[in-house]
């Protein structure tokens, strides 16, 4: 319980812009670094950051899959194995690096994230869509599970053959309730946001303090330096 509180406290201390900067650095490294060493070092740095924020399981999971993908890729190319596709493994290890700081971004409370991102020159509406999407993704996944359960109970998913014989019907049975439920949640979220004054034209203040502190400067400076070094390696 104390660990959870400490984790939340640390996550709340970091500014959204810093995590966005980390994500951009990860993108640059994944795009520009040609070797495994530089890429691996930067991934390890992000792994350490996630661990510092208490996201041990997620960090270990991502880093484990990353190592597996790299080892798999090396073995496949060495012994000319083509399944699973080396291209798939190549994409997995390249995409995992930006996905790790993006996960940290998703863990920042939406109020704090909104307050931080308001200071970046992105159109407010686009920023709002991005933030809502970030928050909405777990809800949608949960709703998918609920719809799947309901379909199982009603016998729509009783066999693979049944699904393959009627793919359009199966899709319709899955998508229609999904859309209805999502629109209902979207309407509730909209009502809640309007009640809290999101459409008010005046300058918004936040419950969260949004400023770049010493920790943010440290993370940004080290990440920028590490990104440059890892691209050169």
């Amino acid at each position: 319980m104390t660990g959870e509180k400490e984790k939340q406290r640390r996550i709340e201390k970091i500014d959204g812009r810093t995590v966005l900067f980390l994500t951009v650095c990860a993108c640059i490294v994944t795009f520009l670094s040609m070797g495994f060493v530089g890429h691996g070092i930067f991934t390890f740095w992000i792994f350490l950051i996630l661990c510092w924020f208490g996201l041990y399981k997620q960090a270990a999971g991502c880093f484990g899959v990353y190592l597996l993908a790299i080892v798999g890729l090396i073995l496949e190319t060495k012994y000319q194995i083509s399944f699973p596709s080396p291209l798939l493994l190549s994409m997995v290890y390249k995409l995992l690096l930006p996905a790790m700081p993006a996960y940290l971004l998703a863990k920042i409370p939406s109020g704090k994230l909104t307050a931080s991102l308001r200071k970046i020159p992105i159109p407010a509406r686009i920023m709002l869509v991005l933030i809502v999407m970030l928050r909405f993704a777990p809800t949608v996944l949960h709703e998918f599970g609920e719809v799947k359960e309901a379909m199982k109970i009603r016998g729509f998913l009783k066999s693979v053959g049944n699904v393959l014989r009627h793919p359009m019907d199966t899709m319709e049975y899955a998508i229609v309730p999904m859309v209805f439920r999502s629109l209902k949640i979207a309407d509730e979220l909209a009502a809640s946001a309007i009640v809290r004054g999101i459409e008010s034209p005046c300058k918004k203040e936040s419950y969260y303090v949004s400023r770049i502190a010493a920790l943010d400067w440290f993370l940004m400076a080290v990440s920028a330096g590490a990104a440059v070094c890892c691209c050169v390696l």
């Binding site: 596709s85 859309v179 629109l183 909209a190």
Partner: peptide, 30 residues
Amino acid sequence: GIRDIMTIAAMMVICFIITMIIGSVTLPFP
């Protein structure tokens, strides 16, 4: 309006999750 933004975000999230699933299922077959 906010309701429009929420609608777009909700539909885009579902769409994007489906895109990710399709991408990862089809990626082994270039």
